[in-house]
Design a protein around this nucleic acid. Structure first.
Length: 905
RNA sequence: UGGCACGUAGCUCAGUGGAAGAGCACCGCCUUGACACGGCGGUGGUCGCCGGUUCAAUCCCGGCCGUGCCAACCA
């Protein structure tokens, strides 16, 4: 497959850049690079994994996007970070597999197709199951390629030859195997329970698919039940009624008890008596229940509707109450509701209230802010209903999943997310896994028409396992989408077959995902992986934040602040896009997407490109090594530090720090200093000592870019490849010809530390900065050459750096007397007298020196206080003590110099 | 109500038990031979508040205030 040509912008033809291409195009063209390199990578097989190849395995399975979805910023972030890791590890010699795929997304997808059909006036139930499924498959085939094409635009290096779909043949087999095994083990069972029901979607939901809408304006409505006359009424009893309150008056049609607290003196004597239901022919007992009832709340009496409320349901079980369902699946009152039968839930509420009022039973109302349970998909108010469904027993599965994280087999990044994971698993409810949908994995259970026995099997049965009847019908329901997702880390590798992939790549290295699906997905993969594979599915779980807009608001269509990743890539190029995402991806932080940041990273890309053009101006082929000078040694040592920091950052999932590190090194050390330092040599003569310096500079420059192109490639893949391919002498056999994807990621050891060079360069930098500062303060043009005199020590120190001082600060350092008009600075403990004859403003110079001396005064005061503190001297670590003493001495010397200068001005 | 985060320069965020950092923004100066998508110099912070531990706290501990998220919720 190729990249998404249709949505790629028209760009100038890719620059022909093979071999020595000097000069380079003035700007890097990310679109041309992407169009050229992605198909080439894919065709060449570099994305493909081989379980038989050597190398320690490093595997990531993609969080599968909805097959019919479109790429949003969350996907972009998630997949960019995965690709950064995958490319880094691949270059580092691991046997890498990044396994891509998509999810059938049961409810979501069925919902979309249903809506499309409804728009054409077709109801799915009229068209029938088979035909409807054809339509869904058609929609899947038609739109299912979008997300995968869009992922390619991101530059992801997935092994597309292993692409999976949750409803493909292999995964369906895994789903069935899982169901059958757990059924045989007694971990999956069928039962009649109170479950969450979506009266619009007409399906059961798991707890997780129910979302609560907060702050809904409602009311608490109170009414009275009249006591039934009974023999044995207490002497002198006055209470003829008992008042209850509810936010849902219509549920009183299903009331089967009134509960009071057994110790409540107001009511205790009523326990055992009954009230008369005003609308249906039923006497309702008054019961005592200390768990449900808080005597201090409201009237202290609670109506109990065991068939439509989870707390009441528990009461019903405790007291063996009748459980009367009063609703039809689509949320209307059923025959148990007597005169109200046929009314919608909300109509019934109004009617019940009116009728209670008419009977004089209304006892008051008050406003009440409440939370409403709503279906994640349909948005309908969820109705607890008693229903026969399939369930998974969670306790035996959850316990090992908790243990695995407690014992460190799996680590959460950041660590605190394990609390969320534990909290859910330790109090996990049974998982309702059946859905009354058509799109999904159909439950492999057959109901016998004659003996009602349920036959579950790996192959479709032809007769009842119990009575042998052939009157069998397959269960109508499908499985929760997350049932198949839970198997993803091993089903995609071939489970239940014992494949080479499974043996090599399970457990996977890391899972990257958002916190919103820790329950839905991460926890379930954990317990399923442990159950079937005996090992955790991933060693690390990296939880990233949400991508928000620049104000920190959630992106939403209604707010109109949604950023489209594909459009952004079209505009700025995928490399800058990815650099921005990774730079913003701090651990445990949401990402505030900002156009300013994109701009900054685009500029950075341009900055590197220009430095790269500079390389090409001076280097035409791979340079031979030469003896490095101080500048060369310095930048190579700095590069080593950069490499070590980038690696440490990536190893700790600090994508932000890795990206920033490359930025800082490239801009502030390579471009601001090294390139300038190297110019005198590069523009100088070819012979003698200067010739050697020139050759060394060429080699160093090349070496730095040789490393930089590899260093940046995981983050900015096409850019890194473009730099790599166009390195002068790229085609030379020993220069790492071919794709950067297979080049070795730079190692810190390649560029050892060099304290001598570091100190030497720091000194000349100090001098340059000091002179520039004076120049800026005195408003002296850079064109005015300055002379800085000193006692001789600095002249000697800077003997070999005269060219740098001249080019970077337009200053000559010379031995001589202090001029009458001079600005004094201290470099490396030595006074440097910058000759300002004719331009020195003495009063301003006095101000400057005074300011500087004041600063030193404070510093000295601080250090003296510290060193005068006996406790500090006694308890502080020796190195700090030495450092403080040295600093104090230095500052005092410096102050003496400046005081002398001030007196002389 | 409980849990988990977060609170550092105007904005977005790094950071460490030893005298506060970056990007963007802002203010000067500069068309120097990679780059004006640039260069040089600079302004800017009681590190939310109050206590405690320590020779030393922005960092560790406790409390409070504010913000966000998650989970439970009172009929």
């Amino acid at each position: 497959m190729s990249t998404d040509d249709a949505s790629a912008p028209a760009t100038p033809a890719a620059t022909a850049t093979a071999g020595k291409a000097t000069p380079l195009a003035p700007h890097y063209d990310p679109h041309a690079a992407a169009l050229r390199y992605y198909p080439e990578w894919e065709a060449s097989g570099v994305f493909r994994a081989d379980p038989h190849a050597p190398g320690e395995p490093y595997c990531i399975v993609i969080p599968p996007p909805n097959v019919t979805g479109n790429l949003h910023m969350g996907h972009a972030l998630n997949n960019t970070l995965q690709d950064v890791l995958i490319r880094y590890k691949r270059m580092d010699g691991y046997n890498v597999l990044w396994l891509p795929g998509t999810d059938h997304a049961g409810i979501a997808t069925q919902w979309v197709v249903e809506r499309q059909l409804r728009a054409q006036g077709i109801e799915r139930r009229e068209m029938g199951r088979e035909k409807f499924l054809e339509c869904v498959w058609q929609w899947k085939d038609q739109s299912g390629g979008n997300i995968v094409r869009q992922l390619r635009r991101l530059g992801v290096s997935c092994d597309w030859s292993r692409e999976r779909f949750t409803m493909d043949e292999g995964l369906s087999k895994a789903v069935r195997e899982n169901f059958v095994r757990l059924y045989e083990e007694g971990l999956i069972y069928r039962a009649t329970r109170l479950i969450n029901w979506d009266p619009v979607g007409l399906t059961a939901l798991s707890d997780l698919e129910v979302e609560t809408e907060e702050g809904v304006q409602g009311e608490i409505w109170s009414f009275a039940y009249t006591l039934t006359e009974l023999a044995g009424a207490a002497e002198g009893e006055t209470a003829q009624e008992i008042v209850v309150a509810t936010t849902r008056p219509e549920t009183m049609l299903g009331d089967t008890a009134i509960a009071v607290h057994p110790d409540d003196t107001r009511y205790a004597h009523l326990i055992g008596r009954t009230v008369r239901h005003p609308f249906v022919d039923r006497e309702i007992p008054i019961i005592g229940d200390a768990i449900l009832v808080d005597p201090a709340f409201g009237s202290g009496a609670v109506k109990v509707t065991p068939a439509h409320d989870f707390n009441d349901h528990e009461v019903g079980i405790r007291h063996n109450l009748p459980m009367i369902s009063i609703f039809t699946p689509d949320g209307k009152v059923n025959a148990n509701g007597g005169a109200y039968a046929g009314l919608d839930r909300f109509e019934a509420r109004a009617r019940v209230k009116a009728d209670l009022e008419a009977l004089g039973l209304f006892r008051g109302r008050q406003d009440h802010v409440m939370t409403l349970p709503k279906s994640q998909r349909s948005g309908a108010v969820v109705e607890p209903m008693i229903s026969t469904q399939w369930f998974m027993r969670m306790k035996p599965l959850a316990t090992p999943a908790v243990g695995a994280v407690e014992h460190g087999f799996t680590t959460f990044w950041p660590d605190q997310w394990k609390n969320t994971y534990f909290a859910w698993l330790k109090d996990v409810k049974e998982w309702c896994i059946s859905r009354q949908l058509w799109w999904g994995h159909r439950i492999p259970a057959w109901h016998c028409g004659s003996c009602q026995h349920v036959t579950v099997g790996r192959t479709d049965p032809t007769e009842c396992a119990k009575c042998g009847s052939t009157d069998l019908g397959q269960d109508e329901d499908v499985l929760d989408t997350w049932f198949s997702s839970a198997l993803w880390p091993f089903s995609t590798l071939g489970w239940p077959e014992k494949t080479a992939d499974l043996a090599k790549y399970y457990p996977t290295a890391v899972l990257l995902t958002g916190f919103d699906i820790i329950f839905f997905w991460v926890a379930r993969m954990m317990f399923m992986g442990l159950h079937h594979m005996g090992q955790v599915p991933f060693k690390d779980v990296y939880i990233h934040g949400l991508v928000r807009d620049e104000h920190g608001d959630k992106m939403s269509k209604t707010k109109g602040n949604v950023v489209d990743p594909v459009q952004t890539i079209d505009r700025v190029g995928v490399d800058a896009f990815r650099m921005t995402l990774t730079a913003l991806a701090g651990l445990g932080r949401d990402i505030l997407w900002s156009e300013k940041q994109v701009e900054a990273w685009s500029k950075f890309q341009n900055k590197i490109w220009n430095a790269y053009r500079f390389l090409h101006m001076h280097v035409a082929e791979k340079p031979a090594p030469a003896v490095p000078g101080p500048y060369d040694r310095w930048i190579l040592a700095r590069l080593g530090t950069c490499v070590r920091n980038v690696r440490a950052a990536l190893d700790g999932y600090r994508f932000d720090l890795a990206t920033a590190e490359i930025y800082q090194f490239t801009w502030y050390e390579l471009c601001d200093w090294y390139l300038e330092f190297s110019k005198p040599a590069l523009y100088g003569p070819d012979d003698g000592a200067q010739g050697e310096a020139k050759r060394a500079a060429r080699h160093t420059l090349w070496t730095v870019f040789h490393a930089l192109s590899r260093l940046i490639h995981p983050i900015a893949p096409f850019f890194g490849e473009e730099l790599w391919r166009n390195l002068p002498g790229h085609e030379a056999p020993d220069s790492g010809a071919g794709t950067v994807m297979l080049a070795a990621y730079p190692r810190g050891d390649d560029f050892p530390e060099d304290p001598v060079a570091l100190a030497e360069i720091a000194r000349v930098q100090d001098a340059i900065i000091a002179v520039r500062r004076i120049r800026s303060e005195k408003n002296l043009s850079p064109k005015i050459g300055l002379t800085a005199f000193n006692g001789g020590a600095l002249t000697a120190a800077f003997a070999s750096q005269a060219a740098a001082l001249r080019d970077l600060a337009n200053v000559v350092v010379a031995t001589g007397e202090r001029p009458a008009q001079a600005a004094v600075v201290v470099v490396a403990g030595e006074e440097l007298w910058i000759d300002l004859a004719g331009v020195l403003d003495t009063s301003k110079e006095r101000e400057r020196l005074t300011r500087e001396i004041e600063r030193l005064d404070k510093s000295i005061q601080f250090l003296e206080a510290r060193l005068g503190n006996e406790a500090f001297v006694a308890k502080a670590p020796p190195h700090l003590l030495d450092k403080s003493r040295a600093e104090l001495a230095g500052e005092i010397d410096k102050r003496a110099s400046l005081r002398g200068a001030l007196a002389a001005v």
